[in-house]
Design a binder for these strands. Structure first.
Lengths: 345, 345
DNA sequence: TGCCGTGATGGGAGCGCTCCCACTTCGGTG
DNA sequence: CACCGAAGTGGGAGCGCTCCCATCACGGCA
């Protein structure tokens, strides 16, 4: 199971017992000081803290975990096929939010990539084996059994995004509908007459929300729906490319496109260039996610940004609260999005 | 220090003792089976494995760590200012390599972002506190005290990249010189007469190597050096943009540019467009890193790719070997790079 | 003056594992 | 047929903490 290993000759760290001896107190008292118990006199506390500093004492995490029946660690689970996630500023920001919030609570972050369903099941086992106090899930797809597996095992967990409108699992999500509405409103305000959209994968709720937002804003602005202006993509560049041609064929006079992702927009942009349409002259383009691609497209792409770092923080706070046994106020939290205007629109 | 927490009413997992009882053997024997000791008879082994499966037993990590004086975990340290790293496929691939190699050894990966110097010092303390068996370092800058801090504390560590030609700290790096040479050779073979280069940050060894490779290939091809064809950037887009104008001013007739990073190339490309030079018609362009930007530039950028996933694996293997106390063969390992040809050259 | 509550403290009893020593078998040897 | 070593096994002794109960000192109160 584990590999055989010899210990490197690392010097032994001081133990709580040694701190106690040095401070002239008992083990219990030192433990109380370390854990911030109020049942310690100020004089004693000061003495103990001095001893800790003198010895350079650092609590032994494993011993703590074993005695306290906790792990002081949470896992971040990334579906393997989604390692492209790493290539997203979105994800980087989530991690930044998560780590900063965890650092305050002195809790470690475990990174886990799980590809197959069986691997995810194995992970649930792991999690149950007291290895982690809670789990953060990103990029969960509709059929993923992991959330329910974790719930069954009573393991606190929070996920990023939702699988449906009535997601019961604790989650933190960006306001996809609001972001899409802002994007479409922006295009209309710029004077667009025929705003098309290229959707994301239909089995993903975020894609549905972005499409809903598109329809909602058109309705609010009194623009008639035209199914010919809606083409289906899959969040990929290739999908965006194909969908753009489809749209161009059906509605040659379209003058704006709201894309469900930046990658989709990149594909659409390529198709537009091939078709001899300029951006934003002939067709205005807006993406979603505000990824690295958006800034480096030609012209730079207007895109919808989610408050990702804050989402990471919020997820973590929610998870820590759940771990602490605090009753969840609401199953989920939706944070507002922001339109980042660039030259493409 | 840590936050107060109440346990969620999670059911207790079976212990090694219970497995032993069920299999009708002693604790020691079960432990031997779990750890793959050869000193167990086949019959016993089978019985124990059956009991483990029946009970759904999973070893308790903290108990193991405490008793075995190890952590079964390694940390990946990312300098905070470098969270842009996450936005690189480079980094994603490193992580993939690291996790796959660690999974085999059943070792966990801790992700740590450390920004300030004091935080890094604190991390060294942490690491020393038996929290991790080893450390993986990415994106280490020249003045970073962490490697030496870890070495002093006897903590096994491996870093990605080098700080100088005679890096003594264990490391795994890509062949920057070779990659640069391949890029320049490619440009020359395409018929370029005046190959310019935009360098990376001068304080980074990788930038130096790429420049060295540029010179080396020119020399090998019998082309005279021309300092006017070398402009200094800093790996950023803005730097590439400025450097490109500088080059254009000095050597208007240049017909190819080797850029020290894709981002640099993106900046150069923007400058070229403004200056009315076509790519690759007037000027051929090559980048380095093969990041997402490269694929999405217009035209797509030829770039040098490093075997990043393999680098992650290699780092991990080296670290595990060091942890196991195996004497390191060489301080470092350099892996070959590959030129990915696209339309920009 | 005696009694009791309260705040502060010490330390025993584990947490679930690994390490290692002692013990039992058993087949081969002299 | 006694003897010996190797192979296989059981279980005691921790690892460094937390939890919690017992103890103690000290006032205030009757």
């Amino acid at each position: 199971m584990a590999i055989a290993r010899h210990r490197a000759g690392r010097e032994r760290r001081p133990t709580l017992e040694q701190v106690a001896e040095r401070a002239g107190v008992g083990r219990g008292t030192v433990s109380r000081v370390i854990n911030g118990s109020p049942r310690v006199s100020d004089r004693t506390r000061v003495a103990v803290e001095a001893a800790i500093a003198d010895l350079g004492y650092v609590p032994h995490r494993a011993a703590r975990a074993l005695a306290g029946n906790r792990a002081d660690a949470v896992a971040l689970v990334v579906p393997e096929p989604e390692t492209r996630l790493f290539a997203e500023p979105y994800f980087a920001a989530i991690i930044r939010g998560v780590t900063s919030e965890l650092a305050e609570a002195d809790i470690q972050l475990l990174l886990t990539l799980s590809s197959t369903a069986s691997e995810r099941e194995r992970f649930a086992q792991y999690a149950a084996g007291n290895r982690v106090d809670g789990v953060l899930l990103v990029s969960v797809h509709g059929e993923d059994p992991l959330p329910e597996l974790l719930a069954e095992n009573g393991i606190p967990a929070v996920m990023n995004g939702r699988r449906s409108a009535d997601e019961a699992f604790p989650h933190v999500d960006g306001d996809n509908v609001g972001g899409a509405r802002a994007a479409v409103r922006h295009l209309l305000e710029r004077g667009a007459r025929a705003v098309a959209t290229i959707t994301g994968s239909r089995d993903m709720y975020a894609a549905q929300c972005r499409l809903d937002g598109y329809y909602a804003e058109l309705a609010a602005s009194g623009v008639d729906e035209d199914e010919g202006l809606v083409a289906h993509g899959d969040f990929s560049e290739e999908g965006g490319y194909r969908a753009m041609y489809e749209l161009l064929g059906r509605r040659p006079r379209l003058d704006a496109v709201f894309c469900a992702s930046d990658l989709t927009a990149a594909g659409a942009r390529r198709a537009l260039r091939e078709a001899g349409r300029s951006v934003p002259g002939d067709v205005a383009l807006v993406g979603f996610d505000d990824s690295a691609i958006a800034r480096h497209m030609d012209p730079p792409l207007t895109s919808v940004r989610q408050p990702t770092e804050e989402m990471g923080r919020a997820m973590t706070r929610a998870l820590l609260a759940e771990i602490a046994g605090e009753p969840a106020a609401a199953p989920g939290l939706i944070l507002p999005t922001e339109l980042v205007r660039r030259a493409s629109s």
